[in-house]
Design a protein around this nucleic acid. Structure first.
Lengths: 120, 120
DNA sequence: CGCTTGACCTGGAGTTGCTCCAGCTTGGTA
DNA sequence: TACCAAGCTGGAGCAACTCCAGGTCAAGCG
């Protein structure tokens, strides 16, 4: 799979994919005879996971750690599981922050409405 | 109110508060005789709102626009309302992204479990 | 067969939104 | 009166992209 296809499939930009490769977040990516990257289905699945983790706020350093485990293979499954469970907990906290913000917005909007009524 | 108190009340760091002032995200902040900032209750409320917006992903440029409206006073209420409504919609999208990620994690975790069973 | 176009390559500079630091001033305490 | 914590400013540093210049290569077209 060409890098442009991977970009549109994963939601990452082409530049970000190359950047992630440079930071060792990806396993070795195959190259075609012409030197271009040729992503396997597994590569793409991995990038979709990274994209999703990053988009929901996993820090780069944590992703590097996760990627190291991934490269070391099956013996690291329980370590990777721990990373994902921790991130699932993080998602709950993010959801709570969104909810608090939504509540604050509802309150502010109500106040704005009251203020515009007072003016009329 | 001193800057350190505002920081712990709003969740923003002292540096970030000064940074926001430099970027004109805040109205003019009073200074004590000694030159230190002295935040009013309204200042603090504004910073809490900014903190919440920023934390849930409003871009700086949008916040600058919002702050400009705020500084111009009551005539901009409907403009500010539009900004907050737009952000409320953004919150829904973020919540959906979190949910998709949670689902992906649940799937991956299940697969990890299956793989560890196979090994044993 | 030569030429152009477009997708890809690399290394490096630029951007956003903080975050930290050096070096200074000041108000309160012993 | 001597100190220390808390504040000040201007500027450097950092994370995570994002963009750009300048180059390669395969494919399609006249």
């Amino acid at each position: 799979m060409r890098i442009s296809e991977v970009a549109s499939t994963s939601g990452l930009s082409i530049d970000t994919i190359r950047y992630y490769e440079k930071l060792d977040l990806l396993p070795k990516i195959a190259r075609g005879r012409d030197g271009r990257r040729d992503f396997s289905a597994e590569n793409v699945e991995w990038l979709i996971l990274l994209s999703s983790l990053r988009d929901t706020g996993m820090p780069m350093e944590r992703m590097r750690y996760f990627a190291q485990l991934y490269r070391r293979g099956n013996e690291t499954l329980s370590g990777r599981k721990a990373v994902l469970l921790e991130h699932a907990a993080h998602l709950d906290m993010r959801r709570a922050a969104l909810d608090r913000c939504a509540e604050l917005l509802a309150y502010k909007l109500k106040r704005y409405d009251e203020m515009t009524e007072d003016l009329s």
